[in-house]
Design a protein around this nucleic acid. Sequence first.
RNA 1: GCCCGGGUGGCGGAAUGGUAGACGCAGCGGACUUAAAAUCCGUUGGCCGCAAGGCCGUGAGGGUUCGAGUCCCUCCCUGGGCACCA
Length: 881
Amino acid sequence: MQERYEPLEFEAKWRQRWADADLFKTREENGRPKFYGLDFFPYPSGAGLSVGHCRNYIPTDVLCRMKFMQGFNVLHPMGFDAFGLPAENEAIKRQRHPEEMVHEYGDTYKRQMDLIGIGYDWSRSFYSSDPSYYKWTQWIFTKLYERGLAYRSNAAVNWCPKDKTALANEEVVGGLCERCGTPVEKREIPQWFFKITDYAQRLIDDLDDLDWPDGIKNQQRNWIGRSDGVEFEMAVVGADGSGRFDLESDQADADKPLRFRVFTTRIDTIFGMTFCVLAPEHPLVSDLAARADEETRVKIQEYVQAARALGDTTRQAADREKTGVNSGFHAINPANGKPVPIFLADYVLMGYGTGAIMAVPGHDQRDFDFARKHQVAIVPVIAPSIEESDQVVAAHTNGRAVESKEGVLINSGEYTGQAVAAAQQNLGLWMESLGIGERKVNYRIRDWLISRQRYWGCPIPILHDADGSMEAVAEECLPVMLPQVESYEPGDDGASPLAGIPEFLNATDSEGQLARRETDTMGGFACSSWYFLRFCDPHNFESAWDPEKVKYWMPVDAYVGGAEHAVMHLLYARFWTKVLFDIGLVHVKEPFARLQNQGQVLGLTPYRKPRDGEVLDVGEDGVLVSFEDAKNLSEADLQWRWVRMSKSKGNVVTPDEAVAEYGADALRIYELFVAPFEADVQWSNEGMQGAVRFLSRVCRLVSEFGPRYRPTWREELSGSGRDIRRWTHQTIKKVSDDIEKFAFNTAVSALMIYVNNLTDAIKDSSSDAELSEAVETLILLLSPMAPHTADELWEGLGKTGFTYHADWPRADEELAKVDEVMIAVQVNGKLRDTIAARASASNEELEIAAMGSEKVVFHIDGKEIRKVIVVPGKLVNIVAS
RNA sequence: GCCCGGGUGGCGGAAUGGUAGACGCAGCGGACUUAAAAUCCGUUGGCCGCAAGGCCGUGAGGGUUCGAGUCCCUCCCUGGGCACCA
């Protein structure tokens, strides 16, 4: 038997045996509860896995292994998110075809996942680029199309000039392409969208029932961005401010009354409106320009042109000066009938609300800044109280709007004196009663732009008929196969490379007429929005899935991955699931009942202090240097930092290296133990060494005890090793509970304590039966975390088969109970002594025992005892003065 | 600016309102060794003390409580997300 942890001697052997036994093939036996454990669908990168990625896969594996041993049918699959830009860009760079490339990379991932002992059922694996998979991605697209949830629209979209494709809003961060950091441009191209906005409210509401990290739920709520407010109508009047607009003009519809609608969340401040703003793209702008005098018309047109020319990044920079132009027209404030000037300004966005606002400079900082620059009046209408209205004026003098919702209305006609909340309610009702406006909810989220003008994606299954209409490709004609091509580089013209392939492009519609295929492909997030359903029934060629199988396995019970997907994948997958629920194709409204985000593994990385005048990359305050160069730098110039492992930083540790040097189980134990699951960790060779030591101690304990091991210990328990049995059953409970709640670090800690205790206990030659139970239990509790070592030791005890097939130990609450406890004795809240007591001791007994302590007597000497607090099993606190 | 996290020994971290620092890493002392590595044993928050013991201590300040790392208020630092979204 192994006397120390020597992974080279047995780990590979066990992996081979597991593979030979098909150990991780999904069990679907009747009468067992199910458990679906899933890792985020990875894109297989050419760099392979780092030990950072393992931080995702190891914990899920531990939980799944324990669940299986507890008798669950466990679904623990893995596949590859192979379609999409990262793969295609990599393929272009390497002059390879993405198809063969992703399979090669996927094989590497699989090899590495096997190397660290992850128990995936590979028989269920697939690539999202497999026609047998994307056929059904297309099929789901047609389902959305039939329901009006997939539509084509000419829109000003975010275009990445480097990746040469349109991007979803979620893929644009701070005006830059999330993937390559290139500033995005606005382009008017017909694009495909999914109508996720129809589901905005449900996507917010159903978060409540999910067992997800609060941070992620919050991010989703913020991204969807519900705002409750009032939308109302404003009438445009002549420049003199009187009467309805009916300016004399030779234009035919010049006397048509002009109106526009505004949305506000602060209807309570309506009496403070001193101007209105239209977005430069607002449809009313051209009407106003047409009716304006020559000089103003030119000014308006110039401003609209200038706004259009600005990129989103510049235009939406929050610290930019507020530009704008006065239209010369006015609008009537419905609350007090007063006319206010209408400006055009690009700080108002056409894409949100109505593209027009009522501006209240007294209580909105943006309006305040604009009003100051353009000399518009600022009227305070909210104050802490009527008496304290001067505070508001003082703030304005200091250049600040008062955005607080605390306080009451002032200068607000009959509403003066009302609290903000009441006034919001009352003004909303008043507007509704007169039909001027109504209370309304707006969402920040936009529809999901799904089309990409790229080759390597799932073709959108749509035909453009000769008459200009569109139709979805019929199910029996799916999949629309992505053609095999030599060259697939994207062009600058906004057209997909597929548009240049006549054999693909030309097709016939359902009536046999000539038609043109849609040539855009779907962004990768479409493919990953349903893969968790396919895993339930991956070999189904008749349909996307058998509803019974999905009904059995869904929802995912533990979904594990990085927090960076908080609002993209997780929102899209929830949306698709809801649509499929509405169609009746799945029975769950939410795909992922429980979500856990693992922390990252950081590598120590050398940086050099910038030289004078050196320009740094965005977000960096030093210059990345290679480990070689670092050796030649002076200590003053060199800075070591902990940063996320990545190929480009040169700080990656691969599982291959870690396993070769320390062993797979050591890597597993280290990553589980080093920090809480969700925390970032700093990679350390010393820490790995600690894991090796722990596993060696386990081996030594089991091998030293081995000769005394009694397989029939159950019949031989004598009642002597009470402590041993108590540790055993306490540890079973602790480890089981901790794994369940993703507290792997404390689970390992509990095993370490257990091992330390048992190491002492075997020095005593008695209690062999109790120790036999303990050693068996130790191996089984260790099995999900260090499965190779557990199986090796299990066999060493003379057992046959795998620990994976053994029953998970059950904690006996009676045995876990302590019969003697240490009671803390405090005087005035300060610890003065600890005393031993029976666990069943009554409060009175504890109080008497505490009073009997010499140390306590010393501290209460001469004082009056005012109160004694007894916490059974814990402490006695004597309050004396 | 808004919304979430997080500040505990030299380090990673543990602690249902009830003995702060479990467990591990690093350090120190010792055993084994010709020696080193490995391993094992002991020790390790700070200050005072020969010791017994005492005092201080969970970012800062206040509060609630018999008792606060934990709950409440104010502030500081820090990580992340969103951000001209009306």
